[in-house]
Design a protein around this nucleic acid. Structure first.
Lengths: 262, 262
DNA sequence: CCAAATTGTTCCAATATCTGGAACATAGTT
DNA sequence: AACTATGTTCCAGATATTGGAACAATTTGG
């Protein structure tokens, strides 16, 4: 058997189980046993038992056609994770205010490694439902919220994140090399505002501000997003102070509410 | 070491990890190490490593004040689970139609053991956000959706669910004993419609219809819910056909879309 | 201010659990 | 029917987990 794989794994059995769970859950199509086998690189017997355990625990479901799909137990757990998230609860009223002021979509996401995980979203005219965006992970380097968040890291922490970051080019405007990206972060630090000029999705612009605490145990961001045909770059500039105020308000409330007792 | 505990566990390491995760995630307050220790009944060293693993995997987070809270990785996984749920996707348009017809809140949930897990919810006038209800689990025996779902089970399956069901009395109207409940299910089978007459929450009424497939591998329900002051029992009766039609529509679409290939 | 108690963390031999190769089933195909 | 691809089970050997006890850090009380 292999000795140690370094980078990933680490948590023994649980880590392997989670790796498989994520493979299946984050795939965009149902995977059959053989599909997972190819990705995981584990021996058949082993993988079979691991998948069985995941199914028994309700984390995966095995459909009659032998395809594995994410299980409902994940939903139950996540609903708790979301409902009890203190940071999200503190931010919510500020997000709603920002939405009323701008009329456009407001996002709130936290940095996790090289990704931004969206915790909340406020937008208008749309049937109410768990937005596909919430819980979604996007690359940090090409989103407004992500760039704002990254701009607050110190040199060491930033280096750790940049190390091995894949600058995938999503649009012609994506900042897709390290020197340009570092220059961009400098501009963001100066102004306290990050722009996304169609860097992640064509036709989508956004203005964002960072939300963080002293120890950087929380690194997040707020943004206002809109379609380019409706939201000019001048418009983004006008909204910048509002976004910065919202971010400031959230930080003030956080230090007041969470600072004392912890 | 203990040999076998029967009832729970079963999946070895993973099962134990999930039990702890659930303890922490579903608790209504942040638990400290000792709190978890008391509930889990495991030795300190063991529990400590298990919690560490969960934290390393991002399923839990350890705050500076030594309190464990649900981690963000759960959100990421759940978002995939929700977005890719085929049944939910099929049901969505019918739920929206039902909401337009009634103007009240529409729920869609699937039966999982003795609980209903809500997969979707459509309601009006409310800021868009992941509804706290989605992913939430409610007892099946006292909700409209739950009773509708249970009414479709055969004797054996129903017995398995009733076995050990706790008929907690949530309101004065809760049907809280087995004979009455079985009689209620008979009525529901006759009419194909379940009512919740303030049985789960005071002041909340609801009318529901079951959604299921031939093999009962899917057992779910749709409902329309409203406050008693606005929604009379006569109103519920008027809506019953609409709810039944929505349920029928979902089932038709399901058998058409999922039947052939699987 | 120091002692005692509480809470959290680390260590390691014993052992339950997981691993993985191979044999065994079960579809699906020619 | 023979063949292939796919899924499932088995068991000796490798590994991770267990749980008691010792250790460290924090809080409480005299």
């Amino acid at each position: 058997m292999e000795k140690e794989r370094d980078g990933e794994g680490g948590t023994g059995t649980l880590g392997k189980a989670m790796a498989i769970l994520e493979t299946v859950a984050l795939s965009d199509r149902p995977l059959r046993f053989t599909d997972v086998l190819a990705v995981s690189g584990q021996p058949r017997g082993t993988l079979h038992r691991q998948l069985s355990h995941l199914v028994q625990e309700g984390l995966l479901e095995l459909r009659p056609d032998h395809a594995y799909v994410p299980g409902l137990r994940l939903l139950k757990l996540a609903s708790a994770s979301w409902a009890r998230n203190e940071v999200r609860a503190v931010a919510a009223p500020f997000l709603e205010a920002l939405h009323r002021q701008t009329g456009e979509t407001v996002h709130f996401g936290v940095l996790r490694g090289r990704e931004i995980i969206y915790l909340d979203k406020v937008e208008s005219r749309q049937a109410v439902r768990m937005n596909s965006q919430i819980g979604n992970a996007s690359p940090a380097f090409c989103t407004g919220v992500g760039k704002a968040a990254l701009s607050t890291l110190d040199t060491a922490a930033l280096e750790a994140v940049l190390e091995g970051m894949e600058f995938r080019r999503f649009t012609p405007h994506t900042i897709a090399d390290r020197p340009s990206f570092i220059a961009e972060l400098d501009r963001i630090r100066q102004s306290g505002i990050a722009f996304d000029r169609e860097e992640h999705e064509p036709g989508i612009r956004c203005v964002a501000a960072p939300v963080f605490d002293d120890s950087r145990s929380l690194v997040a961001g707020v943004s206002v997003t809109g379609p380019a045909y409706r939201v000019s770059e001048e418009q983004l500039l006008e909204w910048a102070p509002l976004v910065r105020d919202a971010a400031g308000g959230i930080m003030g409330e956080l230090s007041a509410r969470l600072g004392p007792q912890r």
